[in-house]
Nucleic acid binder design. Sequence first.
RNA 1: GGGAUUGUAACUCAGUUGGCUAGAGUGCAGCAUUCACAUUGCUGAAGUCAGGGGUUCGAAUCCCUUCAAUCCCACCA
Length: 881
Amino acid sequence: MKLDKNYNANQFEPLIYALWEKNLVFKAKPENKKERFSMVMPPPNETGTLGVHHVLFLTIQDILARYNRLNNRDVLWLPGTDHAALAVNALIEKQLSKEGLSKHDIGRQAFLERTQEFVANSRGNMLNQMRSIGAGPDWTRLRYTLEDTSVRVVNETFLAMYQKELIYRGDRIVNWDPVLETTVSDDEVTYREEQTTLYYLQLGPFEITTVRPETKFGDKYIVINPKDQRYKDYKEGQEIEVDWINGKTKLTIIKDEAVDLNFGSGVMTITPWHSLIDYEIAKRHDLTYEQVIDFHGKLLPIAGEFAGETIAQARPKIIEKLRSKKLIIREDKNYKHQVAINSRSDALIEPQIRLQWFVDVNKKVIDWHHQLLSFKEVLQTVVKDHEIDIIPKRFEKTYFNWVDNLRDWCISRQIWWGHRIPVWYRTDMDQKQEIYVGLQPPIDDREGYNEWQQDPDTLDTWFSSALWTFSTLIDPALAENYQLDFRDLLNKSQDFITYHPTSILVTGWDIIFFWVARMILATTFMTGQVPFKSVYLHGLVRSIDGKKMSKSRPESLVDPLDVVKQYGADALRMGIIMGVSPGNDLVYSEERVRSSRNFCNKLWNISRFIENVSDDTIRPDHQFKTNNLVDRWLVVRLSQVQTMVLDYLDHYRFAEAYDLIYKFVWNDYADWYIETAKLNLNQTLLKDSLRIILKLVHPFMPFVSESIWQVLFENQDLLAQQVFEPIKINQDYLSDAEQFNQVRSLIVEAREVLQKTDSRGITLYYKKSAVVSELNPIIKRLAKLKDCIEVDDGEGWRLINTKFDCWLDIDPASIKKHLTSLKNQFDQYQQDIEKLQSRLDNVNYVSKAPKQLVDQTKLQLQELSNKREDLKQEITRFSRN
RNA sequence: GGGAUUGUAACUCAGUUGGCUAGAGUGCAGCAUUCACAUUGCUGAAGUCAGGGGUUCGAAUCCCUUCAAUCCCACCA
């Protein structure tokens, strides 16, 4: 087959991917007895398309999967997608509102159907995008967070926690999104700074401040810090009557430390129903409280004439009324404060008190290694004891900080898309409510009771995501059998037994709380195992201006498929991997993609060369047979590079591994070995070495490496199914390699001198040397010399950076032109020598530093001195002429 | 207010427990060219490792401090 001049990624990639799928390359094989490597893919949200950050985490995982396969391990990389309850729900509601509809108009059933259709569409799209960047998870095990098995496991978990009273129902203040009409977890709330007006209001003898006059209708208490000397005459429990927004009101004085003495006048009123700290104050003092704003964001009858209005409508009118009653003392129009926002819907959060389901994180009933611990303690223990390693380590601090401050987790949501809470209610004749919690709807219809009604709420998305590592390993066929209890279900699921706990989880540090911690929580509870042995946290992808890529700034978004089309998937993958180190953010730049594309092409052309010079009857023999010292140098390098790349990958240092391969292939293999091969063809070694290189490249650039493999080694299996092979080197290869390095220095210096002196067609003379004689044609060619001749004694410019004695026959006048730059070099040598000398003159250095290092310094000094002398001689010799 | 990270060439970043003359990619300058590759080759210029102090024989690396940037957590009624 004749190869094209340039590598055309688009032409090969779809074919190669199809080949992998056809051969079931990605399929895990629990039946074989290899060492295991397993990980689950963090399921991307089914909201539409993949972005560059997906390419990052998919590539890291793909590298790990392919690398471990090449290391002769049985690899399970399990793919899946997330139903993303809140995000998808918000999207669909937005669509509906564009059509002038609300979810209530179409009803729960139609809403869910519509959502399912949307999600199925996104999913197909996303899975194809994964393929097009070369990601190779086990497609036969594709999972989804809202499938039947998942429902079963969610319900099992809910039930088990409920039975241990780890899940409870209660009235609590929650983050309420009045637009989506649902609660939102603390972690999903973000804060935005807003400029607003701060009002100073007259409340009887006091001055209070507020940005939210609309919440002031329910005020019944005045809170003062007990330490505040200004109000020491007012006593706790004292009642005063004041004129307030809607007439006369009686208020009670409360003293509480939570009041900031320095804010405003140090006096506040509280609205416990709509503010967390107010709520806490109210709890402490056992105060009564009332709802002022309803769940749609409208004022309630307590607001009198403003009832039924939204906050936006009512606020100016309330201000007007306050003003006319002369209750406003002054206004600060430039007041800046943080407002709470739902990060998923962008709606303003209104704290509300509601009956919700919670996970108790402090109850000590979890049996973990024969100790009864709380969720919080389990979360602390597993990381402290290194049952789970966090990479990089510094995120342990963030993790502990969060866990230590963990509060009960509100898991119920009032949206429709998601796992339904497995709780049913009915009332008896006396209207007494009965509760049933179970895996499936209750069936007994006892007479005299109303029908069972399922709780209308759904569960927080992260509740099902938290079960991801083990719910995906449960056999779906077994999960249909509700006779089987949960223990048995786990213990009879082949994949669970084989692959859990998983080896590693690769995910972004931004969801360490949402997800990583909650996976640990739920998995330890349900399986008695940790979900994974380590967590690799990658950074966020930023656009070239250093900002986070986000949908709100469309110009910052890069469509991975566009890049694939232009440069190929391999180039995109490596363009992103080039900058990564664990936990650090990286900047996406097209330049890097381009450089990786060029590297693909380099590999391609190396292969073309080998293809062109190859005789098909010669087969590589895996023996790394060497003919001369360049061959032996190559084998030494190959072995070193392979060892280092594997070591880097073992430590998740992807960028370093790639960098090393890149440099080796380009600067050693192409620039030196291939060049010498043109004069000294060793066909078997060329093929042997290329085979090793392709294996090393494959985890990083699967397409181009497999394409080449298919062309050059077509009678073999797929590259994706190979394993690494050991490269044996004899001890004497090392000295040969060193000899070649000396020749390399010779050639580089010759080139440099020729360039600087602008000389061409020069002859090199060398003193008798077996090595130089052997490589004579190579030296002549690579240094572009006219000739290379052995002599008894040299003349011309003497080379000083090689241990071989050789001279360039350059016209003295040319050298003279460059004497200044040569003198600079001499000065540089002089400086370096002085530095080394002073180090050796230091008694402490000689006595305290490792002997090896001191010896090395001595050797360097010796070499440098020699060079300096040689250079000095040459300079004086040519200055004279 | 509590915490984390970052600061290295013009740009984007490597630099593993302190130890060769601090390295790449891109960009820049010069030169080359039918012979695998212009998505090329060769050669080169370019750095006060943010500033200051300390520990050490030795610091880009460890400690303290100042400055700058980014982010997380907690919050102001």
